[in-house]
Amino acid sequence: MTYKQRIDGRKFDEMRKIEAKVGVIPRADGSAMFKIGNTWAYAAVYGPRNLHPKFMQDPQTGILRCSYNMMPFSSSGERVRPGGSRRSKEISLVTQKALLPVLNLEDYPNSVVDVFIELPQTEAGSRCAGICAASMALADAGLDMKDLVSAVSFGKVDDKLVVDLDYSEESYPDAGVADIPIAMLPNSGKISLLQMDGEVTKEELMKLIGMSKKVLMDIYEVQKKALKDKYKGVED
């Protein structure tokens, strides 16, 4: 059996439709929305602000806290019980690690930058959508950044290497599926999120990583455009 054509008709290296917008939550210091297909993420940034309790403070540097949360009605199956799960805690952790390399928090000792990611609607690829929204929100908050962070999932369905798996592909019946979310700092090409589940050979994985730079540059352009759109007209 071979995977001849993608279920939703996309090319194997084609992402779902992307929409991005910056400055969507007026009360936050920075905010953004990132939508890829039916997966929809909001991110809000608050800070740098005081960190309590005090024992968590670091006199050498500010710290970054990330929280990933699915809204109760965001899953196409049963209601998601509020209050966080082991899954959401792990995603919060890897999100924080994905974003940290682009920030310079040494100038903000004893403080915290909070990133809250909320998903109203999900259909595969939600951690990557959250990371894309979060890095735009950090830039919108005016933080000193070395780069943005762009992310999407790569993978393998049956015998084909694919970009941006959707739900029907993640659960493709009777075939090997591998799901590999990757986040990249587009200017340096370095990778700050790499997870995988499924089955691929080392050669296939290196091929996917090779493909990822070009694909993630496309997301980077969308993120940059959304940031520029918010500040367009400010100088004139």
Binding site: I25, P26, R27, N38, M71, P72, F73, S74, S75, S76, E78, R79, P120, Q121, T122, E123
Partner: peptide
């Protein structure tokens, strides 16, 4: 506004912005 919910709405009053989703069990 939310396809994964059985019903949903987004209400804005000025800058206040709320999403409500309904799931049926």
């Amino acid at each position: 506004v939310v396809k994964t919910a059985e019903g949903s709405a987004r209400v804005k009053i000025g800058e206040t912005d709320i999403m409500v989703g309904v799931k049926l069990e």
